[in-house]
Every structure is written in C-alpha cells, then in structure tokens.
Write a protein that binds this DNA or RNA. Structure first.
Length: 574
RNA sequence: GCCCCGUUAGCUCAAUUGGUCAGAGCAUCUGACUCUUAAUCAGAGGGUUCUAGGUUCGAGUCCUAGACGGGGCACCA
C-alpha cells in the first residue's frame, strides 16, 4: 500500500532533495515477517533479503543509491542513523517479534512502582537487592547503558522514570537477542522484580522483555533535549518527551480547564456550545477567518466571540450559561496572541458586573489550586498575590492617579495626552482617554486588579451606570500589565443596542464582514433578555500565569506556524 | 504590516581581524566490559555552514535579496 502510493507520486528532478517523503507506516500495515517486513526507502531498491547483521548489510553497497522515483539520496548521518534502526527492525521481525507491538495489559504507572520501591531502599555500597515484588511497566527508552552482558535502560512513562536492568543470563537467550535490537526511543514492556542496584539506584531487574514499538527516528540529544524553540513547537511530541516541564505544563492546563468547568457548574451554570461557523462574526472587534460552505454555496466566517449566541440563550431562559471554546481572530501573532485561542464566556441572568467580579476571583483562585500554583508568585517580573481579594479601582481614579489629569474634563485629558506625545487631532475625547489609559496605566498594573467603570463611548455593548450615562458598567482584570478578563453589565435595551450597532458600523469599511448587523440578535433582545452580567476570560493567558509561561506558544500544544521550508525542520526525508 | 537578532552534522554547540577551520560532544557502527546511571575506554563513518546572487586571490565570516524562527512595536484577548 505504501509503495503504491509512493509510486503514484509524480516524477521530480533528481537530486533536488525537495520531494523526500516519509513512508506512511501505520498500525494497519501487515505485520512484518521474515520475508515481508515493511520496506524502507533504502530496502525498496533491492528484493527483500533475509535480515542480516548491520555489518553484512553495509557491505552490499545498495543502500547508497538514490530512489528512481523521488530522487531521494541515501547519504548523510540521518540516513545512516535510520538505516541502523531499520536493520534492527528487520532483525526483530526475523526473531518473530512484531516491531509495532500489540496490546500490553496490566502495566503499572512508573510513579506507583517508585512509591513501592522506596520501602525497599538499599543504600549504595550494599549488595544489590533483587527480591522485591514483581512489577510490570511499559514505556519509552530514554537512556541506554551497556556493560557487556548487562544493559541498563531508563524507561519513562507519563508518570515518571525508572531504571531497568537487563542481564543476558537473567532474561534468557531469546530476550537477549531482542535486547540487542533496542534503540533510544523504542517502547518496551518489562516484567521483573523491583529492587535496588549495587550503586543505590532503584531498579527493575527484568525477567521478561516485550518489544512494543520501534522508533525509526533518532531522538534529540539525550542530555540537552530539544532546545530550538522552532523545533519544540513544530515537533511538540518530542518536546513533550524531552522538554523540561513541558508535559507538566500541559497536564496543568488540562487541570485548569477542568477546574474552570467545575467552578461554573458548581454555581449552577450550564455548559453550552454555540456555532463556530457563522454568517457574520459578532461580539468583538476583530477580523474573522473566511470560509465557504459548498452545498449551500454560502460564504461563512469562523466565530470571533461567543457572546451573541450565549445572550440568545439568556432570552431562551437558560439563565446561567457558559461556553469554554475556541475562537478565531484574523490578527497578528505575538507572545500573547495566537490566531485561535480558548475563551471562556459566562452569562448570569439577574447579575451584573459586580457578580462577575466575584465569579472571576473564584474561577482564578480555584484554577490556581487545581494547577498547584502558589497564591503568591512572580511572573514576567511582577509580584502577584492571587490569595487576597483583588483590588478594585475606578478607571478615572486610576487615570488621575497615574497621569495627574482631570478625567472628567475632556480638555484636561486631551492636553495630558498631547503632552505625552499621543495623536489627539480630530478624535473623540473618550478615544483619546482610552489611548492615554492604555499607554500610561496598563503596563504598571501588576495586579491582579479590577479596573472598573469605563467611558461609555468605548463600550457599545454595555449598560450605562444608573444616573451616569457617560459611564459603562464594565471591568477589565489586569495581571502583569496584561488583560485577563473583561466583563459587563449586559445591555438589554434592543432599541439602544440597535442604535449602537449602527453607530459602530458607520465607522467601518463596507467590506468588513465583521461589521454586519445581527438582526436576529436584536429580535431576541426585543423578546426580552433579563438583566445580566457577562464575563470573558482568556484561558491561554490564565494558563500562562498559572504555569509561569512567558509566551502563549508555550501553553498551546500546536500553535499556528508558517509552513516549514527550512530543510533543518524536515530531517531525514520528512 | 514595521524594526532588531538568529539559522554550522540527526541533536547540542565551536571556528581570532576574511587566510587548511569545517571541528567537538551526544547519537550511529566495530571491539572490550554482569551494577551502569549524560556509563567508560579504543577505533570508524557522517557536512549544499538556511537559500539565491554579489565583493574578494580567497567567504561559515563581508554586502544585497529571500525563507523560517525568536524578541519588540502596531492590532487585539
């Protein structure tokens, strides 16, 4: 199957090196036998031959030839390393062992085995103890040390690492032949007695060795691991195996997300799922990704926010709803922005932005506990205390405190902004005020701090404060100068909402599909949406904070990357 | 989209002011070793110095353009 697909590849100029392809091995491939093991790129050149020792295979000379269809050349370190591994794969097949393994029941987590092993501790210098309980583990070979007829493996599973000793006499001749085919990165199952080595290392003394999966690729440097940030992102699976703390960080992410769900469901919120494909993208000021539905011959966009559909559900009487999902914004990339990111939005009927502040604190504090993050921490150079109630400060009060201007006097705001080099010509005073705030106040907000009561002109979806039409009931939560959450007392006046939409649309280019009026949303409001508080929290940033990451790419398993053209990222024919 | 920095073997890194500098460790192969642990010891193979031009007697090194990545700015969450 693999060969036929490869043979259908169009011919390409020989020697370009651009068309190298990885053979699509899969677990559905036939189990290799002595005469029918999977062909390697090099082996395809010759009829299947009985598996041989590497020395014999190296002497036939055929492995140095190129492939007639792809122009692939077999040369270089990468090819030599792969050949060595494929030779061992063939030897395993010759021994009647499936190099791709099968079900292996009853393996204990290595961490649990280690816990049991502690009770048997034997200090270095004492005779080795090999009389502990029988254990069974499975994992990847991280390190391999051979001392003649003894081989030590460091085996890793998702819970931890442990040393395994394979002795020629102890495992018997058949398993010893298998042991001779092991490479770093292979996956094996081990049965043996738990004990301690002469040098004081907890060790499983293997009695049985089950080969489970061959690794054809060479793993990264066993000591340094993967350090190239590009490779760490492009080949996250390797980063997870070798990166310091990488796996723990994504485990923490999973626990944080689970905790957020739990906090909300505990408070009577219903988790719902809105549409990702939409006719027009609303609820935020961002450009959407465009796509197309074939059967309906209809242009669609990916959602940029969750808001408008969740509010429809408030109209529908669900009262407390949240969605924890992916949104997509066609914006630039940065250490704090990925085009797709995970957003929590929660809406509570009969609440307001103050209820959302309480909810926000609960969500973050519970998530920190779930992730095992201490309440007091240093992140991005800011001292942060999540333990005590978050500070709440008025937008105008903060602006006055930092800049010395009078926020209630537009002339004072504009003059202060101009003095700080901001462009003020012909702009709405509240817009100038917003820019002054962003340039002068945000970076200093170590937080966590709720900035409350925003200028109404920059909050088109927000209810005004009673008796103060120029002030919107909105807060933003800042931590380390970065926006973490955004919440409102939601606007439920359909006539005012429609008017604000129209005002918003008037200032935007006609081809911005984000700027389309959502008539059905207005109609929903006309049926009556209860007064409500609404909250949005950027989950990726929350994970950054709670796992001490400085880049959003460190908390997203597969961040968006440009296609790799650099040959360095396509090693060994990939 | 703009600015700065980076790219050398599969991985991690060296290479004086442009001058035999294309090297080391890991990994791989061969040999030794039944308590090693980044195992060690002896030997071997392995390179389009990201790509394409240019300057020069001579370019990994200098210049131009491009690709990719990182950081910053802008936009946003």
């Amino acid at each position: 199957m693999a060969d036929r697909r490869d043979a259908q590849m169009p011919c390409s100029p020989a020697g370009t090196g651009k068309t190298r392809r990885r053979l699509p091995f899969s677990k559905t491939a036939p189990i290799p036998t002595i005469t029918g093991f999977p062909p390697s790129r090099s082996a395809r050149m010759t009829p299947p031959t009985p598996p041989s020792r590497p020395t014999d295979a190296a002497d036939d000379g055929t492995h140095e030839q190129g492939h007639p269809l792809t122009g692939t050349e077999e040369k270089g370190v990468a090819a030599a390393l792969e050949k060595s591994r494929r030779d061992k794969l063939a030897r395993l097949a010759a021994l009647g062992k499936d190099p791709w393994g099968s079900r292996f029941d009853g393996a204990q987590p290595i961490a649990a085995v280690r816990t049991a092993g502690e009770a048997l501790r034997r200090p270095a210098g004492e005779p080795p103890a090999e009389d502990g309980p029988t254990v069974r583990v499975a994992g990847r070979i991280m390190l391999q040390r051979s001392a003649g007829s003894l081989v030590f493996l460091d085996l890793a599973d998702r819970s931890g690492r442990i040393q395994v000793m394979l002795g020629k006499k102890q495992v018997g001749p058949e398993a010893w032949q298998v042991a001779d085919c092991l490479d770093l990165g292979d996956i094996v199952g081990i049965d043996g007695r738990l004990g301690w080595s002469k040098t004081g290392e907890m060790t499983i003394f293997a009695a049985g060795l089950e080969f489970l999966t061959k690794s054809i690729e060479t793993p990264p440097d066993k000591f340094h691991g993967l350090v190239d940030p590009e490779l760490k992102q492009r080949q996250r699976y390797l980063d997870l195996i070798h990166g310091e703390g990488v796996r723990d960080r994504f485990i923490a992410r999973s626990r944080i997300v689970a905790s957020v769900r739990q906090t909300l469901t505990d408070r009577g919120y219903l988790e719902v799922e809105g549409p990702t494909l939409q006719e027009s993208a609303g609820g935020a000021a961002a450009r959407p990704f465009k796509t197309h539905h074939n059967a309906l011959d209809m242009p669609l966009v990916l959602r940029i926010a969750l808001e408008l559909h969740l509010k429809r559900l408030l109209v529908g009487g669900l009262e407390r709803v949240f969605e924890l999902g992916r949104v997509y914004r066609n914006e630039g990339l940065s250490p704090r922005h990925n085009p797709e990111f995970t957003l929590l939005e929660a809406y509570e009927a009969y609440g307001d932005y103050r209820s959302m502040m309480d909810l926000t604190e609960a969500v973050i504090r519970n998530a920190a506990a779930a992730a095992g993050t201490p309440a007091r921490l240093t992140w991005m150079g800011h001292e942060i205390d999540l333990g005590k109630p978050f500070r709440r400060v008025g937008y105008d009060d903060l602006l006055r405190e930092v800049t010395g201007c009078d926020p209630t006097d537009p002339a004072s705001v504009v003059a202060t902004a101009a003095a700080r080099g901001l462009d003020t010509a012909g702009r709405h005073p509240d817009v100038v005020k917003s820019e002054l705030f962003e340039s002068s106040c945000e970076a200093g907000l170590s937080g966590p701090v709720f900035v409350i009561d925003y200028p109404a002109a920059i909050c088109p979806l927000t209810k005004r404060k009673a008796g103060q039409p120029q002030v919107a009931e909105r807060f933003e939560l800042y931590v380390a100068g970065m926006e973490f959450a955004n919440a409102y007392t939601e606007l439920n006046d359909p006539d005012l909402q429609e008017e604000l939409f129209r005002t918003q649309l008037a200032g935007l280019p006609a081809d911005e599909s984000m700027a389309r009026m959502d008539h059905d949303f207005i109609r929903a409001l006309r049926h009556g949406m209860p007064p409500a508080g609404g909250l949005g929290i950027g989950i990726d940033r929350l994970v950054m904070l709670l796992t001490q990451a400085s880049s959003i790419r460190d908390v997203i398993l597969f961040p968006l990357l440009r296609p790799a053209e650099d040959p360095r990222t396509r090693p060994a024919g990939g």
